[in-house]
Design a protein around this nucleic acid. Structure first.
Lengths: 142, 142
DNA sequence: CAAATTAGTGGGGAAGTTCCAACGATTGGT
DNA sequence: ACCAATCGTTGGAACTTCCCCACTAATTTG
């Protein structure tokens, strides 16, 4: 594995996938949501109510997939959906109280898993890793 | 994205997937191989000839999938396949000269892409990132 | 020798992700 | 009033990942 382990992208991908998987499994158990549902709730918690297309754009999700994601969240009553009075093509998606609670729970679960997976690192190193990965991520969009 | 960008796993996964994707596209063009083919060639280049099961184990690939991967590499004559005299159940998979050349080319392509994706980082930071990600990766297997 | 184990094969399938093409409803520009 | 663009929606194709079962050949174990 020397060659592969010397390639940053390979290691990053492996760690990322493993972490994502672990988190997805935990989230499925505890608040009973998927990763995409969590991501959508997080965006709504950050930005407040938004249109579906805005959420899809922010998350890099196809609009058609966002529809199905919203269907799920609506069914579980984690978000509410109203027509935007200013532009009746758009929806105004907002967190319900239950959605906010679910998000808070989920965020705790994610943090817990992350603490576990990052346990080989000191607090300083964790901050470093996030900072470096963040820099690379920022460079991606261009 | 504040919440999501504050989660190391999320950023790592995003960067990893983007990098992997980019690399896969380039490898498909230039030496004309897939990521899994590259990984197998890399393992063979590192370790020398090996049995399929050993390769499958090392790469975390299902044995039955490894068969199909070997079929491809054999068809392109990048590896050779002989029965192991010591245990005739096993194959002895080895790089052909063409396989070695292809691997060298591919490794160059990967390095080039990585230099591009890691361009926001200084050399020191790149080393840091690889080291930290490596630590986390080492902790995963347990 | 008989039984259990291991290496490779072939087949297949479930689940998830990504992407696209087409459509109705609504809006903004001209 | 008309045309182009946008938002949400439906349906589905293509692809990857991961995994399981049954089977042969060869080896090791009891």
């Amino acid at each position: 594995m020397e060659t592969l382990l010397g390639m940053t992208t390979f290691v990053l991908h492996k760690v990322g996938v493993a972490g994502r998987r672990e988190i997805a499994e935990r989230l499925a158990v505890r608040p009973g949501i998927t990763l995409w549902q969590f991501a959508a709730l997080a965006e709504l918690a950050d930005q407040g109510p938004a249109a579906q297309s805005a959420l899809a754009g922010g998350l890099g999700l196809d609009p058609s997939d966002m529809v199905r994601l919203m269907d799920e969240l609506l069914y579980d009553e984690l978000v509410s959906r109203e027509r935007d009075p200013d532009d009746r093509r758009r929806y105004r998606i907002a967190l319900t109280p239950a959605g906010r609670r679910t998000f808070t729970t989920a965020r705790g679960v994610v943090q817990k898993v992350e603490n576990a997976t990052l346990s080989p690192l000191t607090a300083t190193e964790r901050a470093q890793l996030l900072k470096l990965a963040g820099k690379v991520h920022a460079g991606l969009t261009r």
